[in-house]
């Protein structure tokens, strides 16, 4: 098998110092191959979003190593040029499409801005690429001229996906990108993501707490808890034959027909008051 596109080793992040130091990501390691789709599952506070933020350079790791396509990405880029080069490799889609778009910028301009930052294109070429991106995610000319307020949550998330794809990245991180959507719209976006991956060969790092969505969209999965990877493997195997008790607890917590909620959980919560 070829070398992984993204390799993460012993990634660690702690916030605060001394007695207030808290280890948020603790020695996380995984690999993502070109065209692959890796799921990161975990509950709030498990460190999945912090991991994503380190991958795109929004946080500086305390320890560990990030290698993307043979280059060391552990520390944030030093120059604007290097920063943009990284932007062409990895992009992110956030959970909330209501706060992640500029409400005064038209959708088409939002996509054009990304194109102009990353590529030297003439005005006509930019226009053509914007329409092409719109087509790819299912936004028509009228929607490209609109402001975000005119679009529904699902349409906004299509914009966010188009914006991430505008830089033609090798990896797109989807951080709970379908969690805020209604079921009928969620299915549309999941299908769209599958199509795009097939057509463009882009890899996904898919962060979610929803095991059914993970099953649908990823090949491999890691389960995180308290900043550590507790289980890793092919998605079907992790979900069908979980070996770690925490993965089993997650699985058993999903509502289903003969559900006895809370039967597997301790009555006293383990967490301490913050």
């Amino acid at each position: 098998m070829s070398a992984p596109l993204l390799q993460v080793e012993g990634l660690t992040k702690s916030f605060g110092r001394g007695q207030f130091e808290s280890l948020v990501v603790d020695g996380v390691g995984f690999e993502l191959h070109a065209g692959g789709s890796l799921g990161i599952v975990g509950e709030s506070g498990s460190g999945k979003t912090t991991t994503a933020r380190m991958l795109i350079g929004l946080e500086r790791p305390t320890a560990g190593r990030i290698t993307l396509d043979g280059e060391d990405h552990t520390h944030p880029a030093r120059s604007v040029k290097a920063l943009r080069a990284r932007g062409r490799q990895i992009q992110i889609v956030f959970q909330d499409p209501y706060t992640s778009l500029d409400r005064r910028q038209r959708i088409g301009d939002c996509l054009a801005e990304v194109l102009r930052v990353h590529f030297r294109l003439g005005r006509a070429e930019v226009g053509a690429r914007v329409r092409e991106l719109g087509q790819l995610v299912g936004l028509d000319e009228r929607q490209l001229r609109a402001l975000p307020k005119a679009l529904s949550g699902g349409q906004r998330q299509r914009v966010a996906i188009a914006r991430a794809l505008a830089a033609d990245p090798k990896i797109v991180i989807l951080d709970e990108a379908v969690s805020a959507l209604d079921v009928s719209i969620q299915a549309q976006i999941l299908n769209l993501l599958a199509d795009i991956r097939e057509r463009k060969g882009v890899s996904y790092l898919f962060i979610s707490h929803d095991l059914a969505v993970i099953r649908q969209i990823t090949d491999h999965t890691i389960v995180m808890r308290h900043g550590k990877v507790v289980e890793a493997g092919p998605t079907a195997q992790v979900l069908d034959n979980p070996t770690h008790p925490y993965t089993r607890l997650l699985r058993d917590s999903v509502p289903r027909a003969d559900w006895t909620p809370g039967a597997h959980a301790a009555t006293e919560p383990q967490e301490q008051a913050r």
């Binding site: 509950e43 709030s44 707490h209 095991l211 607890l249 997650l250 058993d252 917590s253 999903v254 509502p255 006895t260 909620p261 809370g262 039967a263 597997h264 959980a265 009555t267 919560p269």
Partner: peptide, 11 residues
Amino acid sequence: DVTTQAEVMGI
């Protein structure tokens, strides 16, 4: 979270 949801629904 899902595990907390299960606990709360149980209660």
